[in-house]
Amino acid sequence: MDRRVIFNNKFLPYLLLAPQLAVTIVFFFWPAGQAIQMSVMEQDAFGLSKTFVGLANFKELFNDPEYLKTFWRTIIFSGAVALSALVPALLFALMAERVVRGAMFYRTILVLPYAIAPAVAGVLWLFMFSPSVGIVAYWLKKLGIDWNPKLDGEDAMILVIMAAAWKQISYNFLFFLAGLQSIPKALLEAASIDGAGEWHKFRTIIFPLLSPVTFFLLVVNIVYAFFDTFGIIDAVTSGGPAKATEVLVYKVYYDGVVALNLGTSSAQSVILMAIVILLTAVQFRYVERKVHY
């Protein structure tokens, strides 16, 4: 990875790195260190003194049924978002790969939700499904479906999952499309000549060859659902009703910023950090594998 020809200069490279490193240290490493430090401390009610409590904050968290519930809820939420964003995206990509006329038009429209802020996406869906003014809520009522995300936790969860998946389909679609375009046409033609049907080709050729992309996207989608859906949840439900849509990131925010419980909030931050590190490691293992192809 190293270049043969380089410039010789003792100070310039440090100068060039300085701005990025300054931001990194002040706003990333220092706060992360603080989070780790605070996670093993207990602050008294007036915020005057701190005492070292070891892993007590973590123990408290894992003994707290509320936290465990939030943990499971996050896993279900992420799984549901990933699945509902991956399956349609794959379907649309398979179809988009086959059309000639209008291909550019389809892609342009399907990519749009990527540009829309999570919180704004949340507002769009909140409005459509609002029991008082929403057009879709009205249709559901006509169909005899009892729908109220303001009172019913399950309805609220379904609503945030839909909004989150809607936004992520664009991203998945582009990656699936790129993946499909890299499958050698000769393979598919050979299969057709052997009399393989569409489904058979998909199962035996396309899907296996797409599996690295799919795996990569699965990780990316889980990371997205874990961390980037804060805006959606805050805009649509604020974690409610009765915490039914409170995921891990939302709880860190709520306990830290709203309830001002520094110790447990920091411990939660540290747990989240561990999760990101784990997911990033998994993601880069995939990249390594891909390089070996």
């Binding site: 990194t24 002040v26 706003f27 990333f28 490493f29 220092w30 706060p31 992360a32 260190g33 603080q34 989070a35 605070m38 961390f227 804060f230 990131v249 860190v252 925010y253 830290g256 910023v257 520094l262 909030s265 920091s266 931050s269 989240l272 950090m273 990101v276 590190i277 990033t280």
Partner: peptide, 18 residues
């Protein structure tokens, strides 16, 4: 490594630094 430290993970301490 900053890839692994999104804002969401270090909300409070970053706020304090700022």
């Amino acid at each position: 490594i900053t890839l692994m430290l999104p804002v969401e993970v270090r909300i409070l301490p970053t706020y304090q630094v700022v």
